[in-house]
């Protein structure tokens, strides 16, 4: 498990160049920004709670159509062209490849989310809780994207494979609406996306517990899914 910065950087740069020239996928980066503009235009007189809700929707959708999709496409494209297998025969290790790719997805998401937060004009009650939630959630969706990429054979399949992620995780935030009729949907409150919404909706006089609980739940999801993704990656490579 040795990590070489040089190799990681080579993979990062290569992926950045490939990705930025693949307009079919990179156009997705503009969608969160468009959403942010629409929401800002719609509710210049929004209350803090309403703003937090639209921010929640915006971020949870962005995680899927930016973070998850980018990561899934990066991996699926390598698989499609058999370059992943060739990469495995270079000195680059699994960790190098995964970190190189994830860091691109991470940087892109961070930039897009920062810009859309600015456009939307959302101000978090606690900045570090907000940043922590974003970082953990991004890592979570990167892991989800890796899994989607590993299960698809081409970029086309990968872009469809992220749909279930969107339905399950973004959709979970609306599960609360059905909670009173179907108590089973209370489980959805433990989804990372719902917890992230709690973080966004913190009232200015929050307590430590209000912040830590959602953060820890998201972190737990992230760790579990990352382990699954890495294990799956190693197994898939052997099968090929």
């Amino acid at each position: 498990m040795n990590i070489s910065i040089k190799r990681v950087r080579a993979i990062f740069v290569k992926d950045y160049k490939e990705f930025s020239r693949n307009y079919a996928v990179s156009i997705c980066l503009t969608f969160p920004l468009i959403f942010a503009f629409i929401f800002r235009g719609a509710g210049s007189d929004m209350s803090h709670a309403a703003l937090a809700q639209s921010a929640g929707f915006l971020f949870n959708v962005s995680f899927v159509i930016v973070t998850c999709l980018v990561q899934a496409c990066l991996i699926a494209e390598e698989k499609e062209r058999n370059t992943l297998r060739s990469l495995m025969m270079t000195p680059a290790t699994t960790t190098d490849v995964l970190i190189g790719k994830s860091s691109l997805a991470f940087v892109l998401s961070a930039v897009i989310l920062a810009i859309s937060t600015y456009i939307l004009g959302y101000e978090p009650a606690s900045l570090w809780a907000f940043v922590g939630g974003i970082v953990f959630s991004t890592l979570f969706y990167i892991a989800a994207g890796t899994i989607c990429g590993l299960y698809s054979k081409s970029v086309l399949e990968a872009s469809l494979a992220v749909l279930p992620v969107g339905v399950i995780f973004t959709g979970a935030t609306w599960g609360a609406l059905l909670q009173s009729r179907y108590p089973i949907f209370k489980v959805l409150d433990y989804m990372p996306s719902s917890q992230f919404n709690h973080l966004l909706g913190l009232s200015p006089d929050f307590t430590m517990g209000d912040v830590l609980k959602p953060l820890l739940i998201i972190l737990a999801w992230t760790i579990v899914l990352t382990i699954v993704a890495v294990m799956l990656y190693k197994r898939r490579l052997k099968d090929e």
Partner: peptide
């Protein structure tokens, strides 16, 4: 075996040099 289609030949060689 296929190749990274959107890289230029020079970028591809640079990548292969660094990664290996």
């Amino acid at each position: 075996q296929n190749e990274y289609m959107r890289l230029t030949v020079e970028e591809l060689l640079t990548f292969l040099i660094h990664v290996s």
